[in-house]
C-alpha cells in the first residue's frame, strides 16, 4: 500500500481517537463545568453536614449555581466549614440562608440557598451567616420515639 495512503488513514485514526477522548471529557464527563465558567468562593459554617460530599451541587430555587469545593472542620468551634464555588453570573444577598438538603429520600445531598432581601451582596470569600444543618434521619427517628415514650405514660397517669 502507498505510504501516503497509510499516513492518511493513521492521521484519521489518531484524529477520531483524540476526538473520542474530547467527547468523553466534555459530553460524558463534566470537565466544562469545572474549568470554563469563572466563579467566586463563598463560605458557610454548619453544625452538621450529614452526607454532603465534595463537588455536590449548590442550588438556589432548584437551579444549580455552583459546587462544593472544600469541606473542613474548624478546629476551635468544631463546626464544618464548607467552601462553595458559585458561578460569577449569580449574586446573593448578605442575609442568604444556606441549608443542607436531600433531593428525595435517598437522593443526592446538596446545599440550598434561600435568598433574603438585603441589598448588599456577598463578595468573593464572603461568609454566609445563617445556616441550617442537615437533618439526620436517625436523630429525627429517635427524637420521635423518645417523645412518644415520654408522652405515652402521661394519659395513663391522668386516668388514675
Amino acid at each position: 500500500m502507498n505510504r501516503t495512503t497509510i499516513d492518511f488513514w493513521v492521521g484519521i485514526f489518531v484524529l477520531i481517537g483524540i476526538g473520542a477522548v474530547v467527547f468523553l471529557a466534555l459530553r460524558v464527563g463534566n470537565l466544562t463545568s469545572l474549568t470554563t465558567t469563572p466563579s467566586y468562593r463563598l463560605e458557610a459554617h454548619f453544625d452538621n453536614i450529614g452526607g454532603l460530599k465534595l463537588r455536590a451541587p449548590v442550588k438556589a430555587a432548584g437551579v444549580a449555581v455552583g459546587r462544593v469545593d472544600r469541606i473542613q472542620l474548624d478546629p476551635r468551634s468544631y463546626e464544618a466549614v464548607v467552601t462553595m464555588r458559585i458561578d460569577n453570573g449569580y449574586q446573593f444577598s448578605k442575609d442568604t440562608i444556606a441549608s443542607i438538603l436531600t433531593s428525595g429520600l435517598l437522593g443526592e445531598v446538596y446545599i440550598g440557598l434561600a435568598v433574603g432581601g438585603d441589598p448588599q451582596m456577598l463578595a468573593d470569600g464572603g461568609q454566609i451567616g445563617k445556616t441550617q444543618s442537615a437533618v439526620v434521619l436517625e436523630k429525627l427517628i429517635s427524637q420521635f420515639m423518645f417523645d412518644k415514650a415520654s408522652s405515652a405514660p402521661a394519659p395513663a397517669g391522668a386516668a388514675k
Binding site: 459530553r27 464527563g29 463534566n30
Partner: peptide, 19 residues
Amino acid sequence: FWGNMRAGVGFWPDITNGI
C-alpha cells in the same frame, strides 16, 4: 440520560483512570 451522566462521571477520577 445525558444530564445524569455528566453529573455522575468526573473527568479526573473516572475518565483519566480509564485512559
